[in-house]
Amino acid sequence: MSDPKGNDGDGITALSYILSGVLLYGGLGWLADRWLGTGFLLPAGLILGLALGVYLIIRRFGARP
């Protein structure tokens, strides 16, 4: 994967991290909100998922030489 031509799919991988993060933790927050009757867990989950997605992108792609 060090080949400069080998990054055709990286954009899609990055996008899938962001999407999965937001969907997973946003979804969990939404469920928790419905269960507990609160209203702050959905936005908190969305932000947490987004942050984790960005973090994973940095981990996976930023570490390359």
Partner: peptide, 28 residues
């Protein structure tokens, strides 16, 4: 679990990576 993720973050990262790499990939 990508290399270099600290342990205290692992429990948040693992479900996300699983979803992204095993479930979302074939769907997309």
């Amino acid at each position: 679990l990508p290399h270099g993720v600290p342990i205290w973050l692992a429990w948040l990262v693992i479900p996300l990576e699983f979803l992204s790499n095993i479930i979302v990939r074939p769907l997309t």
